[in-house]
Design a protein around this nucleic acid. Structure first.
Lengths: 275, 275
DNA sequence: CGCAACATTGAGGGCCCTCAAGAGGTGTGG
DNA sequence: CCACACCTCTTGAGGGCCCTCAATGTTGCG
């Protein structure tokens, strides 16, 4: 249980870190920073096509569909710390994050926030709750300045009627969420902390270093979030994560330098991950 | 880890139990039984309308949509123990259970099966994987003789194009699954065994005794599955579940008689469940 | 420099799993 | 009909994993 201010502050710890001395000996924290320095054109630059293909699938949407989505979308720029989705009021819109970082979790009345999952860049915040006529199951908190896009459910429903391809993509989006959540539940039920962390690391390896060109010996994973947030995602305490890092490092599976992890033994990690 | 035969056998333990002596002193196991005694007309009796409204929502589907679904649906009667969905091969169909009981979980090569969730009656087995072009995240095992319905993804996609209302219902179905899984993940991450069991009991109270007419003092919950399966759903061992039952019973929150649980203190249970 | 937050490390303890034994019930074969 | 195998549930003893609490080191900031 921690205050929102703390979580935000953590993201701005190192706005000018790469300028400092050692890039090896000291933790190189490739946090998401310096965002304000860039112009705000964002994903909407190309008329929004980039945003929609990022969240609705790669085969580009028809221009008229993009235009229609653009018509019904409400776009808002919100500061870090904003509550983007609240489980206390009925979900009337589909919501997605066009730009910035956010955490899904549970917000308490006292202002604390328990993160369960973290999101970045263009990604859905909640594509499902609006269809159920109830409240979202999770809250969403902006960890950086963000651009929030909301799609009224009723308007979206009309669009689905008109553009069957859009409906198919929404189905795929939700199916992917079901898949991800099913795997997450499975891990929580059957794997211990070590296994879950190994699986987490492996996923970071594959999704992050897509250009797996260079000698695949030591894969380097940069931790984009605070370790306590990683721990929260794995449902363990920061202390346990710290011990796990040391433990795996002692076994020679990984090499930890601050916020940079070099994976030395992929098969070994896979064995720990269970399957 | 247990053999499939054991799980099946467990369901037929008491085919003629209600005829026996004491309904109070002895465990009254209202298991799903005597199914073979009933005629096999099943949910498809009324032209399938019952089935589809059960899995796709209450406002009845248009007759032509029902007919179209019926056209593309493959219906199979399978014996207990059949593997209904396999995570070892790509999902080409949406699959649902028209009749019977099944468990979702993980099947190992040695024939053992780790259940994670149990389903009964008309219910979706897997409405999502087919859209992803990959393998299902879970296996499904028939616990009783079942009627399996599969819908080829391609044919389904054509139907979604023709009938937008059908697309909307599929979206709602998937959204509901996302909601359920999100809550399950939350419980696993933040609640201990006692809290998860309390939450499970409360859900059984509300979904089961829909006709909450009679004096709401002692709510009676009948355990439809083996306790070891309940334990598996809660990600605890049968031993722990047994101890939990005794513990809650000693506290006066519930009263346990075999497979019948009387809930004596709903507010107390709610407090244990956390929220 | 002092403060605040994060990460790390150690000590202690609680929750829950593992292992083992026993009771009760059911189906099977002698 | 009874012995036997087999399953389930229960109960106890022991132990491991991970949490909690506390102290310390490090880094960034006013």
């Amino acid at each position: 249980v921690q205050s929102i201010e703390n979580q935000i502050r953590g993201l701005h710890l190192d706005t000018h870190t790469t300028t400092s001395s050692g890039a090896i000996a000291k933790p190189v924290r490739a946090m998401r920073s310096r965002r304000a320095a860039e112009p705000s054109r964002s994903v909407f630059a190309a008329g929004g096509a980039l945003l929609w293909s990022a969240v609705l699938g790669s085969p580009a949407l028809a221009p008229e569909v993009v235009a229609a989505l653009h018509d019904i979308a409400h776009v808002r720029d919100l500061p870090a710390g904003s509550l983007l989705v609240s489980s206390r009021e009925p979900a009337r819109d589909l919501s997605l994050l066009a730009r910035g970082d956010a955490a899904l979790g549970t917000a308490a009345e006292d202002g604390s926030f328990q993160p369960e999952r973290s999101l970045q860049g263009p990604a859905w915040l909640d594509a499902g709750s609006a269809w159920l006529g109830g409240n979202p199951a999770q809250d969403a908190l902006a960890l950086s300045d963000v651009q929030l896009v909301t799609l009224p459910r009723l308007a979206m429903q009309l669009l689905l009627q008109r553009y069957p391809d859009l409906a198919r993509r929404l189905v795929v989006t939700l199916a992917r969420q079901v898949h991800t959540l099913t795997l997450a539940t499975h891990d929580l039920m059957h794997k211990d902390a070590e296994g879950r962390f190994a699986a987490w690391l492996l996923q970071r390896c594959t999704t992050e270093s897509a250009p797996e060109a260079a000698g695949d010996g030591p894969v380097v994973v940069a931790l984009h979030e605070r370790k306590r947030d990683i721990a929260a995602q794995l449902a363990i305490t920061p202390e346990t994560l710290s011990r796990l890092l040391r433990q795996l490092s002692r076994k020679g599976l990984i090499d930890v330098m601050g916020y940079t992890v070099r994976v030395l033994d992929l098969p070994g990690l896979r064995a720990l991950a269970g399957d």
